[in-house]
Design a protein around this nucleic acid. Structure first.
Length: 425
RNA sequence: GGUGGGGUGGAUGAGUGGCUGAAAUCAACGGUUUGCUAAACCGUCGUACGGGCUUAAACCUGUACCGAGGGUUCGAAUCCCUCCCUCACCGCCA
């Protein structure tokens, strides 16, 4: 959620940014509405404060009169308060309505894209930020997509997942399960080495938490929900981990804060279907190691670069061909100001698969989180960032496909200490 | 699931109707002192949203906030109602 100050001070930038998100004239008019409502809010508050101030002062006077025994005079003053009370009720009603409308509107306005974000409508308009320079790998003639490799080597089983739970809940087994565990361990070790504190958060979160990171009120359809306890299964570790610092005022010296954490992620993926859902490409439960940073606003874009570097390093160690995209305004998430996606090339499927998304949210999340820092007596919002480092299911798909040979699937050197085996055959 | 106790500022903790936005202590911050460290002493030390002044900050000022929401009252941290959270013990289970 953007702050009201943001609109006041940066109206032109706001409108320009929303255009990049392909907002039409009708929706851009919301910004004027926000401005109008904000003026109204200030006016109502000034009025309300004045009336209340008077009531407070009369009440003090009554107290003094009663103490000095002037009951009659006190009675007269009491009558005077009565007329004010009607006014207070009226203004409070106005204020409540005003705030509700304003809040609802603010929830619908996405983050303003960073100035470098390219315009565009869909994934096709994303900019290739860093391309894969070497030739793309070519596999032997009998190379298989990962779902067939899984069957051949008994690595994971989607049918069993269906039996136990339903579609999109893979069951990993044997070397497939070990590979999964090895990757998690590898990613966590790499993140720790890069200075991220390791967190194991709760996997279910309450409403407040889900609201602060922006999943609610809009995207409840994408989360699994336990009605009885009013709790949501996390769609990413970002949700619980970013909320660690909700409602905190940090000292400038505490920055940056760097967290990492492994969690399973649960996504309903309501409405998705088709070729993309084959195998591990899109599932309801997958594992992911997430990195989260809380940064000084002056440093957040440097931090973003560091995160790109970190994720690149992981993919290089896994010997996977990858590229980095800078998402266009139309493809970027609601809460993000700048997002880079990492894609690995699946040689068997002959397409690029998204494996990581690294974003700077600037103050958008911090505002909802009420996460601020103090600098020279001044309190201001921090910038928050996060990124997948990395999402497992698709990495597994890519590893299996790209490293397959006629004699089995080769485990990248960096991973062998974690798997304990060097080949799946 | 049952029974009981609690939710006050960064922490501990006082406060049962007006002088309490909140004692005291600790922590933190600034300073003085000091071979060094420590100690001592002095000072500062909540947040949000308005208004005034200002280029801005500083500053002055108003309102709200003692888990959340409502009520009683001229006046509520304090009294009443509803809800939420939490802790302890018992039962059950890992």
């Amino acid at each position: 959620m953007l702050t009201l100050n943001y609109f006041n001070e940066l109206k032109d930038k706001t409108i320009e940014g929303l255009r990049k998100r392909n907002w039409d004239i009708d929706r851009l008019a919301w910004i004027d509405t926000v401005e109008k409502l904000d003026e109204e809010r200030k006016y109502i508050q000034t009025e309300l404060d004045n009336v209340k101030a008077e009531v407070n002062s009369i009440s003090r006077e009554i107290g003094n009169l009663i103490k000095s025994g002037s009951q009659a005079e006190a009675g007269l003053l009491k009558n005077r308060v009565t007329s004010h009370k009607a006014k207070i009720t009226e203004l409070e009603d106005q204020s409540r309505i005003n705030k509700e409308i304003l809040q609802e509107l603010l929830y619908k306005i996405p983050n303003i894209p960073h100035h470098s974000v390219p315009a565009g409508k869909s994934a096709e308009d994303n900019e290739v930020y860093k391309s894969w320079e070497k030739p793309l790998p070519e596999l032997h003639a009998s190379a298989l997509p990962h779902w067939e490799l899984a069957e051949k080597y008994n690595l994971f089983d989607l049918k069993l997942g269906v039996k136990i739970t339903g579609a999109g809940f893979p069951l990993y087994r044997g070397k497939g399960a070990k590979l999964q565990r090895a990757l998690i361990q590898f990613f966590l070790d790499e993140a720790s080495a890069a200075g991220y504190e390791e967190i194991i958060p709760p996997l279910l979160v309450n409403e407040e938490t889900a609201t602060a990171t922006g999943q609610l009120p809009d995207k409840e359809g994408q989360m699994y929900y336990c009605e009885k306890d009013n709790l949501y299964l996390i769609p990413t570790a970002e949700v619980p981990i970013t909320n660690i610092l909700r409602d905190e005022i940090l000292d400038e010296r505490d920055l940056p804060v760097k967290y990492c954490g492994y969690t399973p992620c649960f996504r309903r993926e309501a409405g998705s279907y088709g070729a993309d859902v084959k195998g591990l490409n899109r599932v309801h439960q997958f594992d992911k190691v997430e990195i989260v940073r809380v940064e000084h606003p002056d440093r957040s874009y440097d931090a973003l670069q560091e995160m790109l570097h970190h994720v690149s390093g992981l993919l290089e160690k896994l010997e996977l061909p990858y590229r980095i995209l800078k998402l266009c305004g139309g493809d970027m998430g609601f809460t993000s100001a700048l997002t880079y996606d990492f894609e690995i090339f699946s040689a068997a499927q002959k397409k690029w698969l998204e494996v990581s998304s690294v974003s700077n949210f600037e103050t958008f999340q911090a505002n909802r989180l009420k996460l601020r820092f103090k600098s020279g007596g001044k309190t201001q919002l921090v910038h928050t960032l996060n990124g997948s480092a990395l999402a497992l299911a698709r990495i597994v798909a890519g590893l299996l496909e790209n490293h397959q040979t006629e004699n089995g699937i080769l485990i990248p050197k960096a991973l062998i200490p974690y798997t304990g085996f060097s080949v799946i055959d």
